[in-house]
Nucleic acid binder design. Structure first.
Lengths: 227, 227
DNA sequence: TTATTAAGATGATAATTGTCATGTTTCATT
DNA sequence: AATGAAACATGACAATTATCATCTTAATAA
C-alpha cells in the first residue's frame, strides 16, 4: 500500500492509466513538498526536468510582460499535472508557476515519465489528450480575447471560476484572486477590472463581499458573456 | 518505391519517425486531393476522423465569431499536418480549415494513425511534441494579443509571415493575404489594419505594391514589435 | 496599538480602436 | 469595353479601454 494509489492526481490526471507496478515505481521516485501562497514552483526559463502533481491548492501559470503586467494563462487545481509541455518539448519553462493558495505538490522526474511513455501506451495517449485539451482551450481563449469586450470577458471568467472551483459556504467564489490577478486573466488594466466589478455589483449581477465575489445572477452573466 | 517516401510532409512532420514498412502502409491508406483557394478542408463541428498532410499550398485555421468576423488562429504550410488535435481528442473540429493558396493534401485515416501510435513510440512522441509546440505558440500569441497594441501586433505578424513563408522575386511577401485576413490574424477591424499598413507605408517600414506587401525596414519593425 | 504598506475604489482625461459612411481601385465576367 | 462585385482606402465620429491621480479601506509588521 502506498500513498500515490489513493492520490487525487492519480484519479483525475493522465496517471490514471498507470497500473499497480507503475504506481509503486512512481511512489518511489516522487518527492512531495509544500508551496506557500505567492511562492513559485518554477519560473519562466527554468529547466524543470519533470512533472508536478497538484495534490492540493491552486496555482497560476503566467508570464510577465515588458510593462510589468502579469498575464495569467491558466489556473491549475488539485488533481492536475503541471509542466508537461516543457518536459515533452525538452524546453525550459515558457511560463512561471506560482501558488495562489497554499499548495501541496509532488514532483515526478522526467526519466520516470519517459519510462511510462515507453511501457504504457494508454498513458501516452492520456498525456497527449491532456495537452490537446489545453491547446483547444488556449485557442478558444485567444479568440475570446479578441472578439469579446472586457466586460464580456469578465463575465465569462467569473462564470468559469465558479464552475471550475465552486463556492464557499457563504456562496462567494472559492478561488480568491486579487483584482490584479483577475485583471491578469481577462487581460485588462486592474482599474478597468475593478470598475467593471463595481458596475456588475450595481447591476445586481454579482455582490462584492469585502474582497470576495458572489455570483448573484448567473443567467444574466451568461447572456452578457456570449452575446 | 512509393510517393510518400519522398514527400515533404514525411520529411518535416511527425511522420519522419515512420519506417519503410509503415510508409508503405501509409501510402496504401492515404487519399490525395486538391483544394482550391477559398475552399474548406473541414469546417468547425465536422468530424474529420483522420489527419491531413499539407503537400503544397497554404491553409488557415479559423473560427467565425458571432459578429461575422473570422479570427485566424494559425496558418499552415506545406510539410505540416492538420487536424491532429481533433483526432487525438476524439472531438469534432474546433476550427475551420480553408485554403488560402491552392492546396494539395493527403488524408490519412485515424485507424492508420492509431496503429502507428501503437507500433511506433517515436511517432507518438513526435506528435506529442508537435501539439506541445502549437500550445506554446498559442499561449504566447494569447499574451501578445493582450499586452501589445494593434500596431505592434501588425509589425510582429508581418515579420512572422516574412520569416515563415519568405518573399517572392519582387521582394514582397509570398503569402498573399487579403487585408481582411491579415486583420483576422492580428485580431482587429479590417479598416484599422488597412490604416496601419498605410501608416507603415508612409513611415517607410513597408511598401505597398498593389495588394502585396514588401518589408523595407525589418530592424525598425522588430523594434516596434517587441517594445 | 500604531505605522506602514498593499489592495481596492473612483474620477478625470487621453489614447486606442471600432464603426459607419463613402469613394476609389482592381478584378473577373459577360 | 462595360458592368458589377470585391477589395482597398480614408474621413468622421463614437465607444472602449488605459493611464494618472487621489482617496479609502484592509492587512501586516514593528
Amino acid at each position: 500500500m502506498n500513498k500515490c494509489d489513493q492520490c487525487i492526481v492519480r484519479q483525475l490526471s493522465s496517471l490514471k492509466a498507470l497500473n499497480k507496478e507503475e504506481i509503486i515505481k512512481l511512489a518511489n521516485s516522487k518527492t512531495t513538498y509544500k508551496v506557500k501562497k505567492g511562492e513559485a514552483l518554477f519560473e519562466e526559463g527554468e529547466v524543470t526536468n519533470g512533472v508536478f502533481c497538484v495534490k492540493d491548492g491552486v496555482g497560476k501559470l503566467s508570464k510577465l510582460s515588458a510593462n510589468g503586467k502579469d498575464q495569467i494563462v491558466k489556473l491549475v487545481k488539485s488533481g492536475e499535472l503541471l509542466g508537461q509541455r516543457s518536459m515533452i518539448s525538452n524546453e525550459p519553462a515558457n511560463l512561471t508557476a506560482k501558488a495562489i493558495a497554499d499548495m501541496e505538490v509532488c514532483f515526478i522526474p522526467k526519466t520516470e515519465i519517459i519510462n511510462f511513455f515507453n511501457s504504457n501506451n494508454q498513458f501516452s495517449l492520456n498525456m497527449m489528450q491532456s495537452v490537446c485539451e489545453d491547446l483547444k482551450e488556449s485557442e478558444n481563449e485567444k479568440i475570446a480575447l479578441v472578439q469579446k469586450t472586457v466586460k464580456q470577458r469578465l463575465a465569462e471568467t467569473l462564470l468559469h471560476l465558479h464552475s471550475e472551483f465552486g463556492e464557499d459556504a457563504d456562496k462567494t467564489l472559492k478561488v480568491q484572486l486579487t483584482r490584479e490577478e483577475l485583471a491578469g486573466i481577462i487581460g485588462t488594466a486592474t482599474e478597468s477590472c475593478i470598475r467593471l466589478l463595481s458596475d456588475f455589483n450595481k447591476l445586481g449581477l454579482i455582490e462584492l463581499v469585502g474582497k470576495k465575489i458572489m455570483l448573484k445572477d448567473v443567467r444574466s452573466l451568461k447572456k452578457l458573456a456570449d452575446n
